[in-house]
Design a protein around this nucleic acid. Structure first.
Lengths: 307, 307
DNA sequence: ACGTGGTATGCGTAGATGTCATGGACTTCA
DNA sequence: TGAAGTCCATGACATCTACGCATACCACGT
């Protein structure tokens, strides 16, 4: 078969795989079986005459040919979907931005930026989705989102090595703080010593490859006691308020913590910095995308003035 | 079925139908049966939720929804084909212009413009195809060609009424002449009287709806004697040279007539003007397209200086 | 050695997509 | 007015495709 006869279904599957990173996840997202995804990709590769994906243990990586196909598939599918909307009589969605964000950005930065945009440009529709940094980067490359707010920790490496390189812009540098229950001994003052953190119980996020235990103060010289692993920030902070343990939190989220939680700084040890980064594909932005990017910049300045 | 799940085959069939004007012709062009085309269009219409084509006696006309689909289908298919070329390692064809032309333009204007472009911009590839004015207009709208050189006769109506309106630019006004065999009594002088054309034998093109007998001097007060009907200009002029009859010819082609043929003007009767028009879709032209358009303008000036 | 998280593949079936043949609507021409 | 030509639509039938299921396979970590 020739590539000119690929089916749109195959392209959709391919985009989803590129975005999810594994066949299995893509299958789940699409309501297919993993088997169907495997076959679709296989026939797509046959049609392309090239291997499109490198199958790795931890998922798939796009080959050069795969990147070619992804770029074009994203454009084609967008256009098809736009056509469908147009036929259905819906607005052509020229005024839409799709934003992806990592969880810590959702509490403060995101609501501010979005309400700012809604105030100044009511015609613009902003849709968002949460995701991990690698998921968001894949989504950017798959053309499923226009902007991504991602986190970066020292040594601040670019989030992927594919080409074209993503456009990165640091929105803020956030210092890491500690969230403690108000009744806790460590909550007595505005700051605690890193040495006092020994023997504490921690509330961490689910284990991820990038950061070993998100939520545990980095660089402790002991193996931390993980009392809970929680992904959701509200649940996490309520657990802190309930005295179930401590967790790390970005300084910029201090204004959003519920009662019963105190945010304190940690003295001693290295300065723990995290960057909030705005990422996008290189090239021209649409008007709404540029406006949302500006709003995010402004909100970042408000929330977290430069040190 | 949803429009987002249309098959590329259906879009290809649709584009071909839009370009050829009938299901039957599209089927022939694609190597399908008419029945298959009919079904493909039917399912496409079901997916689109709208009728896309008005079935008329003389062929099909696009509905509004049909125009939406055509615009987008053309873009999508182009992109897919570009991807296929890219995967095959071929150049991305950014330097290609596709030109359509009506037969009379092929003898003089077309070769000049093309060789001019080749001289000044060797990197640009020009591909061309011949076609009738309606076929070329459909091809423009189907995105299969970038520029069309078409003919227009009084009252110089635009070649179609669809939207967006085509960008039209008059390249030249050509006056109509008469081609006679060198031995013929009418070849004695540079011009003949319209009254002398009575009773002549004519070589005409195949009957078409637009112009009743292309090749017969217009406005004769008798029913003309059609000795031959010929489409090809070389054959037509050789028949003239052989004394088989007379035919009309554009003044701009005078330099290309073979030995044995004389081109004379006709006095009396209205001035018979034909316009050579450059047509394209509105919107930005690619660089190569703009260059070819300029070359066509220049060639038209050379061949046929303004009256 | 085994469980975990990933991809590939044999097999059977349901649906999509062709062809063929035919029919209906309409125009043109004698 | 009837015959022929030119369209498109559709019923009957034959593939061929693409799916799900089950299972095999493979690399890694415990």
């Amino acid at each position: 078969m020739d590539f000119t006869d690929v089916s749109l279904v195959a392209l959709r599957v391919f985009r989803e795989v590129a975005e999810r990173g594994t066949f299995t996840a893509a299958a789940a997202a699409l309501g297919y079986t993993q088997s169907a995804v495997s076959r679709q990709i296989a026939t797509l590769e046959r049609a392309a005459g090239n291997q499109l994906l490198e199958r790795r243990r931890e998922g798939v990586a796009l080959t050069d040919a795969g990147q070619v196909v992804l770029r074009n598939a994203a454009a084609v599918l967008d256009r098809i979907d736009a056509t469908a909307r147009e036929l259905a009589g819906l607005p052509v969605a020229g005024g839409t931005v799709r934003l992806g964000w990592f969880p810590s950005a959702g509490a403060v930065l995101l609501p501010r930026a979005i309400s700012a945009v809604r105030r100044t440009h009511p015609a613009i529709t902003v849709t968002t989705r949460e995701g991990s940094t690698p998921a968001l980067v894949r989504a950017l490359r798959a053309g499923t989102i226009d902007l991504a707010v991602i986190a970066s920790a020292p040594p601040f490496r670019p989030p992927d090595a594919e080409s074209p390189a993503l456009k990165l812009e640091t929105l803020a540098e956030r210092s890491l703080r500690l969230a403690v229950p108000t009744g806790h001994p460590l909550a007595a003052s505005d700051s605690v010593e890193v040495a006092d953190l020994r023997g504490q119980r921690w509330i961490a996020g689910p284990a991820s490859s990038s950061e070993l235990w998100m939520g545990v103060w980095p660089g402790l010289d002991e193996r931390p006691v993980l009392a809970h692993t929680v992904r959701d920030w509200l649940a996490k902070l309520q657990l802190v308020a309930a005295g179930a343990g401590l967790t790390t939190i970005s300084a910029s989220m201090a204004s959003a913590v519920p009662p019963g939680v105190r945010v304190v700084t940690v003295r001693g040890g290295p300065q723990e910095l995290r960057r909030t980064i705005l990422a996008r594909l290189p090239g021209r932005m649409t008007e709404p995308t540029a406006l949302l990017a500006a709003a995010l910049r402004a909100a970042a300045l408000e929330v977290n003035p430069p040190l």
